[in-house]
Structures are given as structure tokens and as C-alpha cells.
Design a binder for these strands. Structure first.
Length: 646
RNA sequence: GCUAUUGUAGCUCAGGGGUAGAGCACUUCCUUGGUAAGGAAGAGGUCAUGAGUUCAAAUCUCAUCAAUAGCUCCA
């Protein structure tokens, strides 16, 4: 007998060799139907694999990320099986599960697959799934594996196998389709109830552009039709929220090929929005003891040679610009830190001066490959809400904490409720990759983790993801429809103070090296605005939105009253304008709704006589009529809800 | 940067070797209206740019520029 401990702490006894699936059956029919795979002693494996020792067991269903992964990985096999039926002779590369679904890379020979073929492939997959084919695992020797695929003529699988060690190779078979795979897989194909192929694209074999381009088909599957329908609605919703589309519709920003790729042009409304965000942060930073600094857009090449960035990124940057007579070289600045270091060292510093916090909305230019550019999220010229804190080692923790407070304030003000933080620390196996004393690193890593705990943050720690100069904390938000975005970052840096020879005089009258904290709560204004647009679907919070209201006179007779209302509201710093067009009210409302103007003020005979306004809220409909005073109070309250003007 | 697709009016898009189309937006006129589209008329385009093929190119070919998707990359 073996002891199996379940996640709830229960321990039950089973005969040796029992499978997770059988255990599920012993618990309930429903669970047996829904089990996709199992996690045994921390390792995800087939539900049909016998358990030969005592251990901890978690039965995985669709509700577990690992369960979903099993489903999608098995779906990739199912797709390959269907394609082998439809296009015999297809050779297969790799077919993993991904965050949302799966893909399979394949060489179709002379065949060309386009999205027009999806329906027939989906149909075949559904047909095979319904046959309840088992995923049969078998262990094979390297020799057998090589023989099988050389007979099949699949050079991709042969290449994969030749990189594997003998004794660790397994095959999975569904129907006639045999694939090299470490698993795990579903008990059988009947779990796959809803199938959707999403896109087809080229992908180089093993990501190497010197090698053959294979056809990659992306798809997703679900255990219930309803879940697929929900997912498709989500995709539609994501399309509607695309910041590139909304940016155009709401006249926030544009691009011009004459200006150049990846160089955004902020239109008046977008610039206004961005300015409000900047002013908000400036105010918060001022309260937190930051001092604004301003530095030029270019810097001598040597500055970046000193910082070490030239060696690392110089080849992939815009080429230096040179003075006509002296041939001096300058770089468009790709970052602000070296400039700020020079400000720090412009004067001797005492330990009493620290921390010093320099903040700048610094516009930087980085050469991004043309294929990487994407709306406002990936551009070649952008503005960081940058700041560098120069402090003593004993101040790192408090400073870090204070930066977190700023990030949290921003998230709160902009309604990012769901986020996690990722703490990136050194790779313990590879200490030579990093600079700075071991002691400093330990201190910094420990402080960041402590701070995260003290702040009650939901965090994960990832080893080996730290920058070479120090550990960092990144903030990932989940937007209103569940997509993840990386925004702010806080980094501890021992490198630049060293390279720029930054010093302060301690209370021991000796020179010491300060520690630098780089931080950008928004990340970049461009990227942040893009994420914000998608998060709120263009319906910005009232304090931010370029146009807070529009006044809709019922007819020309009430234009005078409309102007009176507007000038009253403007006294309270409320932004809006009047729709003077000779359109019907229904039309004006429709246009204002589409423009996502938060409040529509309808004025006609009744309002003029009573000196009131009739208020309609975007997306909510008629709120009834109220006095101007009450309306401005309503607006003021909503603006202050963001808790930004405290 | 690589591969594929795309580029026609301000926007969304149809068309396609014989000289340009729709809807919305815009202008003017009629209409003066009560919570998501009132009516009419008008104006607006070297069909991304450059070259080639052709009697003739917006249409076919090539190059360039840009966009989109995927790959690779991101201080």
C-alpha cells in the first residue's frame, strides 16, 4: 500500500500501481470525467501513469493552469494527427502548449495551408476527438526512436532526438499518429470538445532565420463549447480595445511615414491626456521629495562608453551623430541615467545629503527592429517617467518602499486593481555574471523581498532574471479583460555608481559609494497610455479624459442657455464643449456616446425655465435633471474619487 | 532584420489593363427636434512612392516606403 496525500491535507491509502485516474474515480464520477492530468510530488504527469510510491498528489482539471496546459499540448497532437490524415507526408517540428492554446510547426512540402483550410482541419480534429482515442505512452530507446523517424522521413524529429539522451525518450500514440514527446497528455481525446484554429504564420525551424521556415498553426481548445464562445467574445473585445484603433478614433495620437517609423505624434487630445498623467506623477513625486532635473536629448558617445551601454547595445543603436568640423561623436540618448549621474557628481556630496532623487520625463531614442514596432507599446522615441535615487546602502530599503508607494498610488488612481510583482534576483549557480559585492547583493535582495512582504504585495521571485548590476522588481498588471502587461520597474544598481565614480563623504570622513535606484512607475508614457486605453476601452477616468462633457442643446433656441451652462461649469474647471450642429438630439447623443464623452448635458425649454440641466452618463443612460450646482458637485466628487488631489 | 499579407476619399472598405465607387465624416440648404443615426444637394482621390512591360497601368512586374501577423530582439 502507498500513502497519497491530497492538497487539502487528507491522506488516503491505495494499492501500489494505482493510477491518478483510478483515484479520481474512487473519489467521484464527476472528478474522473474532468481529470486531465496529475501532479505527483511536484511533477505533472499522465493521469493514467501508475503511482508506485507514496507522495503528494494533485488531480488536475481545467481549473488548474497545468491542467489547461495538458489539454492544449494534447490538442497540438490531435491537430498534427488531423493534418497527417489530410496532408500525408507532412513533417512535424515542435508543437507545444502556450499561454492561450497551442501551436504546431510543420513542413507541408508543396502544400500551402491558409485560414481557409481551418474548417476542414477543425472538422477532422473533432471527428478524431470523438473517437475517444487514448494517448498511449511508450518508452523507446534512442536507436528505436531514430529508426522510426528516419523511416518516416521526418528530419526535424530526427534532429530533436539526436539532441536527447538515451533512456529519456518517450513516444505518444493517438490513433495512427506517433509523436516524440515527453508528455504529459490527456487520458484520451474525448476531453477536447471545442476546437478553434486561430492563425497561420511562418516560423523558422528552431527560431533560426538561417534555417527553413515552417508553417505554424495556432489553435485553442476547450472542454466545453461555452468556454470557446466566451473566448471568442474576449478576442472580439480585445480587438475593440486595441489602442491603435481607439487612438485613431479618439484622436489621441498618429504616425506619419514622413516623420518616420515608430515615432509617435501626439494629437492635442492625447497630449492633454498625457500631460495630466505627467502632472499627476509630478505632484506625487514632489511630495515624495523628488527634484526635477532636465537633460539634453543627446550626449557625448563617451558618456555611454563609460556607462557600459555602448559596448552592450552600441551596435544595435542609432549611429552616432558627429559635429561637422571636429568630428566629435554624440548619441541620441537611449537612457537618462548617465546624465543624472553627472548631475550627482557636479558637486561633492555628504552622507547628510542623501538620498538625492532626480526626476525627469526624459525622452529617449532606441533603435528597435522595424518588425518589432507596434502602436505605442513599442516605439523608437519615447518618454520615460524616469528618476534616479542616489542613497546610502542603509537607505535602500526605505527608498524602495517609498517607490512602491508611488506605484501603488498610480495603480489605484487608474483602477488597475489586479497586479502582481516579480522580484528578479541573481542566478545562484552563476554568481560571476553579476558585479558588486556579494554582501551588497544579499542585502539588496533581502531588502526587496522584505519590503514586498511588509507591503503585503502579491509577489513571485524569479532567479536569474536580475540585471547584471542589481536586483529589480517589476509590476505586471492584469487589465479589465484579463491580459497581462508589464508596466513599472524598480531596479537597484551598484554598477553605474562604480563606473561614474560616484561618491559621498560618510560620517567617518571617508569616501563611500552611493547606491542608485532606477525607477519608472509608468515605464514609458507611450506604453502606459497604450495599456490604459486598452484597460479602460477608451473610457478614461473623469479626471484624465480630454473631454469631460458635451452640452447638447435640443434646438438652436437654447444655444444661449447652453453657453451660459458651459461658462458656469468652466469656472469649476470642468472641461467640455457644446454641440452646435443642427442635428436631432438622438444623433448628438449617439455621436457623444461613440466618442466616449463621460457626461452629456441636454438643455432645452424645460431646463432653461428651471435653470437646470438634464444629465446623461456615457454607457448608463439618463440620470434625470438637476441643478447646475448639484451637477458640478457630482463631477467634483467623481474626480476626487480617484484620490489624486488629496 | 527575416517570412507572409496589405496599401484606393478624413474613416471603414468595394472594384480592377480602356481614365474612380459606397457608407460614415465634411460643406450648404431644408428641418427646430427631448435621451444611440431627420431629409436633400455638394465638395473631396496623380488609387503609397519610383521605375518597367504595354497603344493604354490604379489594375501586371520589380524596387522603395509604410502598415498588419508571426519569428528573432528589447538598456
Amino acid at each position: 500500500m502507498i500513502d497519497i496525500r491530497f492538497p487539502d491535507g487528507n491522506v488516503r491509502q491505495y494499492t501500489e500501481g494505482i493510477t491518478s485516474l483510478d483515484i479520481a474515480k474512487s473519489i467521484s464520477e464527476g472528478l474522473a470525467r474532468n481529470i486531465l492530468s496529475a501532479k505527483f510530488n511536484g511533477k505533472v504527469q499522465d493521469a493514467t501513469l501508475p503511482l508506485n510510491e507514496s507522495g503528494e498528489l494533485q488531480l488536475l482539471t481545467w481549473d488548474d493552469e497545468d491542467g489547461k496546459a495538458t489539454m492544449w499540448h494534447s490538442s497540438a497532437h490531435l491537430m498534427a494527427e488531423a493534418i497527417e490524415h489530410l496532408y500525408p507526408g507532412t513533417k512535424f517540428g515542435i508543437g507545444p502548449d502556450i499561454e492561450n492554446g497551442f501551436y504546431y510547426d510543420m513542413d507541408l512540402g508543396d502544400h500551402v495551408i491558409s485560414s481557409e483550410n481551418f474548417t476542414e482541419i477543425e472538422k477532422k480534429m473533432a471527428e478524431l476527438a470523438a473517437q475517444k482515442q487514448e494517448y498511449k505512452r511508450s518508452e523507446v530507446s534512442k536507436k528505436e526512436a531514430l529508426e522510426y523517424f528516419s523511416q518516416k522521413g521526418d528530419e526535424y524529429k530526427l534532429e530533436l532526438i539526436s539532441d536527447l539522451e538515451d533512456g529519456q525518450i518517450s513516444f505518444y500514440q493517438t490513433g495512427q499518429f506517433v509523436d516524440l514527446c515527453r508528455g504529459p497528455h490527456l487520458p484520451d481525446t474525448s476531453h477536447i470538445k471545442a476546437i478553434k484554429l486561430l492563425s497561420v504564420a511562418g516560423a523558422y525551424w528552431r527560431g533560426d532565420e538561417s534555417r527553413k521556415q515552417l508553417t505554424r498553426i495556432y489553435g485553442i481548445t476547450f472542454p466545453k463549447k461555452k468556454l470557446l464562445d466566451d473566448y471568442l467574445v474576449l478576442l472580439e473585445e480585445a480587438k475593440k480595445r486595441d489602442h491603435r484603433k481607439l487612438g485613431k478614433e479618439l484622436e489621441l495620437f498618429t504616425f506619419s511615414s514622413r516623420v518616420g517609423q515608430g515615432l509617435p505624434l501626439w494629437l492635442p487630445k492625447g497630449a492633454q491626456l498625457r500631460e495630466r498623467l505627467e502632472n499627476f506623477l509630478k505632484k506625487v513625486q514632489k511630495e515624495a521629495g523628488y527634484e526635477p532635473v532636465i537633460t539634453p536629448h543627446i550626449g557625448a558617445k563617451d558618456l555611454y562608453v563609460t556607462s557600459g551601454h555602448y559596448a552592450k547595445y552600441g551596435a544595435d543603436s542609432f549611429r552616432p551623430i558627429t559635429t561637422p568640423n571636429e568630428g566629435e561623436e554624440f548619441l541620441l540618448k537611449p537612457m537618462n541615467c548617465p546624465h543624472h549621474c553627472e548631475i550627482y557628481s557636479s558637486s561633492p556630496r555628504s552622507y547628510k545629503d542623501l538620498p538625492i532623487r532626480y526626476a525627469e520625463f526624459g525622452t529617449v531614442y532606441r533603435y528597435e527592429q522595424s518588425g518589432e514596432l507596434h502602436g505605442l507599446t513599442r516605439v523608437r522615441g519615447f518618454t520615460q517617467d524616469d528618476a534616479h535615487i542616489f542613497c546610502r546602502p542603509d537607505q535602500v530599503k526605505d527608498e524602495f518602499k517609498a517607490v512602491i508607494d508611488i506605484v501603488l498610488k498610480i495603480f489605484k488612481a487608474l483602477d488597475f486593481k489586479d497586479f502582481i510583482t516579480q522580484i528578479s534576483i541573481r542566478d545562484p549557480k552563476n554568481p560571476s555574471k553579476y558585479i558588486g559585492s556579494d554582501e551588497n547583493w544579499q542585502k539588496a535582495e533581502a531588502s526587496i523581498i522584505e519590503v514586498a512582504q511588509e507591503k503585503g504585495l502579491d509577489y513571485i521571485v524569479v532567479e536569474g532574471e536580475a540585471a547584471f548590476y542589481g536586483p529589480k522588481m517589476d509590476f505586471m498588471v492584469r487589465d479589465a479583460i484579463g491580459r497581462k502587461w508589464q508596466l513599472g520597474t524598480i531596479q537597484v544598481d551598484y554598477n553605474l555608481p562604480e563606473r561614474f565614480n560616484l561618491e559621498y563623504v560618510g560620517n567617518d570622513n571617508q569616501k563611500h559609494r552611493p547606491v542608485m535606484i532606477h525607477r519608472a512607475p509608468f515605464g514609458s508614457m507611450e506604453r502606459f497610455v497604450a495599456v490604459l486605453i486598452e484597460h479602460c476601452a477608451g473610457k478614461f477616468p473623469l479626471w484624465l479624459t480630454p473631454e469631460q462633457l458635451i452640452i447638447l442643446p435640443i434646438s438652436e433656441k437654447y444655444h444661449g442657455y447652453a453657453e451660459k451652462v458651459l461658462s458656469y461649469l468652466k469656472k469649476y474647471d470642468i472641461r467640455g464643449h457644446i454641440d452646435f450642429r443642427s442635428e436631432k438630439t438622438g444623433k448628438k447623443i449617439r455621436d457623444a456616446e461613440i466618442q466616449r464623452i463621460p457626461y452629456m448635458i441636454i438643455v432645452g425649454e424645460k431646463e432653461e425655465n428651471d435653470q437646470t440641466v438634464s444629465v446623461r452618463k456615457q454607457g448608463h443612460g439618463d440620470l434625470g435633471s438637476m441643478s447646475l450646482e448639484n451637477f458640478s458637485r457630482l463631477i467634483a466628487e467623481e474626480v476626487s474619487q480617484a484620490d489624486i488631489f488629496d
